[in-house]
């Protein structure tokens, strides 16, 4: 079996709201191996986003253990977490979060600005390569408002790739897109996974989860089911099978 990229053990996260305490995660444990494509599913409010924020080092659990690429993040401070996010994690958001009035290329470059070991030529080169891998090299000079939603999300994926992270985290990355575009994004994700990238993908749509190799089902802050997907769908085939009349 390959290397464990992500190890969480009895993760709890509580939000204190005045006199009330919201227990969003009530003890979650699982491992993710290098090269896995995991989807986290669950109904609204089950704790998916909270989980992903912790995995992405944007948030710290109230208690529990989290090892990312063998680094224990529980003892890291804000700056160390920022560095970890910069070097090991690529984030993809539901709402793309591209900087407005900034070209696709510059958006992709952004994470490298916060990595002082990357020179400006290297930055451009790597950003262009990342754009090529999402097939948007010809749109490098376009600003987000000149791109479709699917294209914007691909730029965001290129941005998540540019720093060569050990894993890509996506929160409802297809949530704002139509079926066809969602499948295109999933096809891209499968390509990246085939190249060896570890992906953790939050969704509440079962047909999106079907493209992954494993599904962790959350319910009320706990793992309800953790199943590997024997017959995972291939997004390219699914795309071809979509009725053409979809574009009306």
């Amino acid at each position: 079996m390959s290397k464990i990229i992500l190890h969480i053990e009895d993760i709890k996260r509580e939000f204190v709201m005045g006199s009330e305490t919201v227990r969003a995660l009530k003890g979650v444990s699982f491992n993710v191996n290098e090269g896995e494509f995991v989807t986290i599913m669950g109904s609204s409010g089950s704790g998916k986003t909270t989980m992903l924020n912790i995995l992405g080092c944007l948030d710290k659990p109230t208690s529990g253990k989290y090892l990312l690429d063998d680094v224990d993040i529980m003892h890291l401070n804000r700056n160390e977490l920022a560095k970890l996010r910069n070097l090991k994690i690529g984030f993809v958001f539901q709402s793309y979060n591209l900087l407005p009035r900034t070209t696709a290329l510059e958006n992709v470059e952004l994470p490298l600005f916060y990595n002082s070991t990357v020179t400006s030529e290297e930055r451009k080169e790597r950003a262009l390569k990342a754009l090529q891998s999402v097939k948007l090299a010809d749109r490098a000079d376009h600003t987000p408002n000149q791109l479709s939603g699917g294209q914007q999300q691909r730029v965001a994926i290129a941005r998540a790739l540019v720093n060569n992270p050990v894993m890509i985290l996506a929160d409802e990355a297809t949530g704002n897109l139509d079926t066809r575009t969602s499948y295109e994004i999933m096809s891209l994700m499968q390509d990246l996974n085939a190249q060896g990238k570890t992906i953790v993908f939050v969704t509440h749509e079962p047909d999106i989860a079907a493209f992954s190799s494993r599904t962790v089902m959350l319910r009320d802050g706990k793992v309800q089911k953790d199943t590997s997907n024997e017959n995972k769908r291939v997004a390219k085939e699914a795309l071809e099978s979509l009725p053409v009349s979809d574009d009306y």
Partner: peptide, 8 residues
């Protein structure tokens, strides 16, 4: 966003 991609 900048923080999420590594800005301190």
């Amino acid at each position: 966003l900048r923080m999420s991609i590594g800005a301190r």
